[in-house]
Design a protein around this nucleic acid. Structure first.
Lengths: 348, 348
DNA sequence: CGTGGACTAGACAACGTTGTCAACTCTGGG
DNA sequence: CCCAGAGTTGACAACGTTGTCTAGTCCACG
C-alpha cells in the first residue's frame, strides 16, 4: 500500500526525500515561482498552467514545507502554552479553550507541562521562543520572568493566566481568588460555623496565597478569631492533607467546617470526611465533575477555566494583531455553587 | 523594564527585530560559523574566542532561530498528537504521557483536537506534516487514512492509538476492548443477572463496536439471549443515553443491569440510576475519578490511557531511531475494578 | 500598424542556520 | 631551518520557500 505514494516518474526525488517546489516545477515544466503562486492561491496564473501544476503536485505528493515558509515570512502561525500539567482537570479545559481560539486564528498550539518546576518552565518557554512561536500563554511556575524580556521585546506576545508573572509587566488573566475564597468562607459563617479550617496549596503559589487571604478576610469580616492551628497551607499530596486536616478535626476544639484551597485538596478531604463519623461542612475552591453526586454533594467556589483560557488567547491574538497599550489585567469572577456539603450546620 | 533588553550598541538590529548569528558575529568580531560552533557546543573554538562570542550573545539577547535550523537539518525534534478532545479525562493522561516521552527524547509536542471530525483530523494531520513534525500520534476520527501515505513514505513516523487506522497499515496501540467488555458483562452474569443492557457510543467508532461485540460474546458465553431492545448504541449526549436507558429500564421485563460503553455514558447512567427507586447494577467501561466515592461505588473496566500514550510514543521514537519491520500492533490489557455497583444482585 | 496596458511567467535574492572545505597559525620534531 | 600535523577560523553553498523585479505575450485601441 505504500508503493502508490511517490510515483516512479518523480524527478529529482529519492525515496524518503520529499519533493520540493523545484521538483514540482520541473515535473510540470514551469518556473519555481509559478508553483509557489499556485500553492498559495495567488492570482496571475493561467488556468491551464495551474492545472498542470496541480497535477504535478498530486503526482509527486508534494506538500509545502512550512519551516521554509516560516523562515521567509517571519511568522509561524503557532502559539505556545505552558501550564503545570496538561492532564489536570482544571487545566485541560483551559488548554482546550486556548486551542479553539488558536484554531479560529489559523494557528497551531504547541504545549508543554512545567510540572510546577521553574527551571522547566523557563526551558520550555525558551525552547518555544527558539521555534519562533508567535505568542505564549503561560501559567507561571516561576516567580521571575525576566528571562522573557528579550523575547517579549522581540515581539513574542505573552499572556499569563491564573497566576501573575514575576518581576515583569505583562498581560494577565486571573480568577478572583481572594473574593471567591472570601465568599466561600462567608457562606460557611452564614451557616453558623465559627471554627473554620483552611487547607490550601503551597503558600508561595499566588492563587494559594490569595485564597488564604480571602479566608482571613472573611473570618475577620465576621469578627471571628483564627487559631493558627486551623490554617494548613502546604503540598497537595493526599498524605499531607490528611495529616493536617486530621489535626484540626481532632483535639478539644475541632473545626466544624473546612475550606479547601483547590480541587485536589477538596477530593482528598471528601474521602477523609466520608470515612469520619462526625459531619464536617466543606466548601472547596474549584468545581469538579461529579461533585453533585457525592454524599453530601460538594459545595464549591467554581472557576471558569475555559473562559480564562479563551480570554487569555483572545488577548494574545489582539496583541498579535497590533493592539497596543499597557498590560491588561483581566479578572474572571468565581461563582459559589451550594450543593449540600457547605450547608451542613455545625455539629457541636 | 523593556529598555534593558536590546542594548543600544546592538549592531544591525532594529527594535523588534531579533539578532541573528551574523549580528553576534559582527559584535564579537568573529566569523559567522564560529558563532554557530559556540551556540551548538562544537569543539574547535579557542577559549578566549568562545568567551567573546558568549558575551556578544548575552549582550544582544540572541537566541538561535530553530526554524532556520530545522530547514537546514531536516528534523524538527517535535511530534504531533491528534486526538478527539484534549480536555477529555480519558485523553488528558494519554496526552501527558506522550509529552513525557517526547520530552525524554528532547522533542516538543504539538497537538490538536479533532473533535471527532474526520475532515478536521485530516486538516490537522496535514498541517502538522507541513510543519515537518518528525512523527505523529493519532487517535483516529476518520476511517480512511490513505491521505497520510505520502507523508509516511516521506518518513513521518506514525502511530495510531485507541482505534485502528483505516485502509493503511501502521503501528497501533489498542486497549483490549472486546475482552474488557466481555469480562465486565461476565461479571454481571456471575452476579446473577440475565437481562443486561448495553448503552454504548456510536457504532461506527471502533472501540464502541468492539465493546458491543464483547457484550454479545459474554451473553452468548453464558447462553443468555439478547433482546435487541436492550442494545442501545448511539451518541453519548446525556439526553440520548437517558432516553435509551429509560426504555430498557421500563416495560414488562426491564433489564436488571447495564453495561456502559464509555465513561461519559457511565456518568450519565450514574445520575439516572441514582434518581431511580429500583437498584440497577452497573459496570462501566473506563475508570474515572471519584468512581469509588459514589453510592454505590461504580464498578468499572479500567483502561490505562497513560500506558497507551507512553507505549505509542515509545514506539514512535523507536521508529524514528530506525527500527524497521512490519507494523506493530500492541494490546493494552484492561482491568476489572469491582467497587459495588457491579455486584448488586438482580432485584427481581 | 504602433502603443499601452493587462496578464502571465520566471530569474534572482533573501530568510538564518549548518556542513564542507580551504586556509591560516602554531608547535615540536627532524 | 623546514615541515607535518594539530588546532582555529571563516568563506561559501545549501536547505525550501516567498518577495521583487523584469520580460515576454496578447489584445484593444487609436
Amino acid at each position: 500500500m505504500v508503493d502508490t505514494a511517490p510515483p516512479a516518474d518523480a524527478v529529482g526525488t529519492r525515496y524518503g526525500a520529499r519533493p520540493t517546489m523545484k521538483d514540482v516545477a520541473a515535473h510540470a515544466g514551469v518556473g519555481l515561482k509559478t508553483v509557489s503562486r499556485v500553492v498559495n492561491g495567488e492570482a496571475g496564473v493561467a488556468q491551464d498552467t495551474e492545472r498542470r501544476v496541480r497535477e504535478a503536485i498530486a503526482a509527486l505528493g508534494f506538500r509545502r514545507n512550512d519551516s521554509a515558509r516560516v523562515l521567509r515570512k517571519g511568522r509561524t502561525s503557532s502559539i505556545g502554552l505552558i501550564l503545570e500539567d496538561l492532564a489536570d482537570p482544571f487545566y485541560a479545559p483551559l488548554s482546550r479553550a486556548v486551542e479553539d481560539v488558536a484554531r479560529a486564528h489559523g494557528a497551531l498550539l504547541v504545549n508543554g507541562s512545567s510540572t510546577e518546576d521553574p527551571e522547566r518552565e523557563q526551558e520550555l518557554a525558551l525552547a518555544l521562543c527558539a521555534r519562533r512561536v508567535d505568542g505564549l500563554v503561560i501559567v507561571p511556575a516561576s516567580r521571575d520572568h525576566r528571562y522573557l524580556e528579550p523575547e517579549i521585546s522581540a515581539g513574542v506576545a505573552t499572556v499569563f493566566v491564573d497566576r501573575p508573572p514575576g518581576r515583569i509587566a505583562a498581560d494577565l488573566v486571573l480568577s478572583e481568588n481572594r473574593e471567591g475564597a472570601r465568599a466561600g468562607v462567608a457562606h460557611l459563617v452564614a451557616h453558623g460555623h465559627r471554627r473554620i479550617g483552611f487547607v490550601g496549596d503551597r503558600p508561595h503559589i499566588h492563587t494559594a496565597e490569595e485564597r488564604l487571604a480571602g479566608y482571613r478576610a472573611a473570618m475577620s469580616d465576621a469578627g471571628l478569631p483564627v487559631d493558627e492551628a486551623w490554617v494548613a497551607p502546604g503540598a497537595t499530596d493526599p498524605e499531607r492533607v490528611r495529616r493536617d486536616a486530621g489535626r484540626m478535626l481532632g483535639g478539644a476544639e475541632p473545626v466544624t467546617a473546612i475550606f479547601a484551597g483547590n480541587n485536589r485538596v477538596t477530593v482528598t478531604l471528601v474521602r477523609l470526611l466520608a470515612a469520619a463519623e462526625r459531619r464536617t461542612a466543606l466548601v472547596g475552591f474549584d468545581d469538579f465533575e461529579l461533585a453533585d453526586l457525592l454524599s453530601p454533594p460538594v459545595t464549591v467556589v467554581a472557576q471558569d477555566p475555559s473562559a480564562m483560557g479563551r480570554r487569555a488567547a483572545e488577548l494574545l491574538f489582539a496583541r498579535l494583531a497590533g493592539a497596543g497599550g499597557p498590560p491588561h489585567r483581566l479578572s474572571q469572577p468565581t461563582r459559589l455553587v451550594p450543593r449540600g456539603s457547605g450547608e451542613l450546620p455545625p455539629d457541636s
